[in-house]
Amino acid sequence: MPHPDLPLDEPLNENELWILSFYRTSEISGSLFFGKLARTLRPGPIQIDMTKHFADEAQHAWYWTECIRDLGAKPLKLADAYQDQYASTAGMPANLMEVLAITQIFERRVINQYTRHLKAPGLKPPIARTLEKIMQDELWHIDWVKKALESLEPEYGKETIEQTIERFRAADREVYANTMKEHEERLRALFGD
């Protein structure tokens, strides 16, 4: 059922539907990736937190699906997620530490993007509620990944970890710039900048 505080005559426009579907696709990809890794990892704190992270991402995918449905639309089927572009830009992560480093960078990007979206003019209440709900989890994601990376310092070295984070930060800047360029018109219409 559509949410009661939304007028039924105010459907999602094409750009809104696209970006919510883009978020949904990204959460699904993250969930599938972390789920498989959580299954692979040996028992320990990282296995536990990654399993929670996987479950959160799956839940977020549901939140976006529900939000789109409540706004009277159906999710678009999008082929690629934002994070799929990292491997071609920075090389694929070679080990668990690199996966965590890329995750930390990606989660920061998600929070920045969701914060930006919250400031968008004319934001529909169900979208704002969904963004706020997800951002609570995203803050925990950044925290656990940071602690996990610190726990890996004896094995990989602090300097190597910092260099890896920097490599993926540079890749993220490139991927973000490409995404902005590719969808410039849509994003300008959505965020008014």
Binding site: F33, K36, T40, R42, M92, A94, L96, V99, E155, Y156
Partner: peptide, 18 residues
């Protein structure tokens, strides 16, 4: 491929770099 590479590192207790 990332999943496979990590699976092997976990299974055989080895570490790879890029």
């Amino acid at each position: 491929l990332v999943e496979l590479v990590i699976e092997l590192q976990e299974s055989f207790s080895v570490r790879f770099g890029q």
